[in-house]
Simulated scan of single mutants.
Amino acid sequence: MWLNLVGDVKSLTKDISDQIMAENKPPEKQVYMSLPRPGVQPVETGYLTSPQKHGTTSKPPKPTKLDQEEQAKLAKSGLDMKLMASEVDQETEKWEERITQDEDNDIVKRAKNMSSMAFSMYQFTRGEGALKTTQDLFTQGEYFAEEANRLYKVVRQFSYQVPAGPHKKELMEHLDQIPTYVQQLQFTVKNPTVGKAATFTKVDNVIQETKNLMNVISKVVTTCFVCATKVVNHLSKLGLETKPPEELEVEFWGCRF
């Protein structure tokens, strides 16, 4: 009987001790899984859920260089790009001959920047110049589109000072094409590709879209100079009432005519 009582007391003591220890034990830390941010989908890693953006891969595509066969295929497009760059250079030189020392003509500045970028893209098609890889070319295409947007805004401001007439109409027809070509180039540059063949196709498309945009830029710059000349001629006629022709000098957009 005494043995049974002793056993019951020991069992009761153990239960009480276990209960006390359980109450004093710190609660286990609970892990909460947060919802993914918009545009991010969860990916199972084996431990916890980690976010990964839509359309991304674990490793970005490696930049590649064109081989000789690919360079040969782009030879004509590259040459066309070079010719367009030369045309823009010739037009900007007309402006530079009349630019005053204390003025900075934004039209000339933007056009020269774009001409320089177009020439570097031509060099890429020959395996020359600063652009070494396809990714360099795509980055240059992005900069080219951005500079075209800046030129568009500058020429739009310039057009407000040009009187109505056939030359202004021609200028606006060319100018209004720039946003469309800029969007097409930006879309082409940002279009993802996988594989050598697809990358070459993208290179070809970027060159073609840049050519299209450069062609419009050349027409815009040429028409701008014609419009500036017409405006100055109009101002000169008004100034003849107060000054003789040999003493008349008119400035327009930082250029002396």
Rank of each mutant, 00 (worst) to 15 (best):
H54E: 13
F252K: 07
L171Q: 10
D67W: 03
Q71K: 04
V40F: 15
F144M: 01
G195Y: 01
Q68T: 12
F119W: 08
H54D: 04
G55R: 03
V221F: 00
I99K: 14
L171F: 05
G7L: 15
S34L: 15
A228F: 01
K62L: 13
V206C: 00
Q208S: 11
D67Y: 04
L79P: 06
L213G: 06
N113A: 05
Y122D: 08
V40N: 04
F225C: 15
H174A: 07
Y122T: 06
L137K: 03
A164M: 11
V203C: 03
M214D: 02
F257C: 09
A198I: 00
P192H: 08
K153Q: 04
E142G: 11
A145I: 01
V162H: 08
K65E: 10
S120A: 13
A145V: 03
F144P: 05
T193G: 04
K62W: 06
P42I: 00
T64C: 07
N105T: 05
F144I: 02
T13K: 14
N4A: 14
D204Y: 05
E251Q: 10
V40Y: 10
S218H: 03
T13W: 12
K219V: 14
R156K: 09
P42N: 07
L3P: 14
A145W: 00
A72C: 08
L235S: 13
K202F: 07
E70M: 00
R98D: 11
F144G: 09
I20K: 12
N105Q: 13
A130C: 10
N24M: 12
M33A: 15
A228I: 00
S116A: 08
T49S: 12
E96Y: 01
T223M: 08
P163G: 06
G141N: 05
Y181R: 06
V43T: 10
E209V: 12
K59D: 09
R37C: 08
Q52K: 11
M117K: 14
F257Y: 08
Q19M: 11
V6K: 13
K112M: 00
F225G: 06
L213K: 01
K230G: 15
Q19F: 06
S159E: 02
N149S: 14
W2C: 14
P27Q: 03
K132S: 07
T49N: 14
E246W: 04
K230E: 15
C224T: 10
F252N: 13
Q184L: 08
C227M: 09
F200E: 15
K168I: 02
C227A: 13
D106L: 13
Q208G: 14
V250T: 09
E93G: 06
K211N: 09
F138H: 03
F252H: 11
I107E: 00
Y32E: 15
K190N: 15
Y152C: 00
R126L: 10
V108A: 09
T193V: 05
M84S: 06
K53M: 05
Q71H: 07
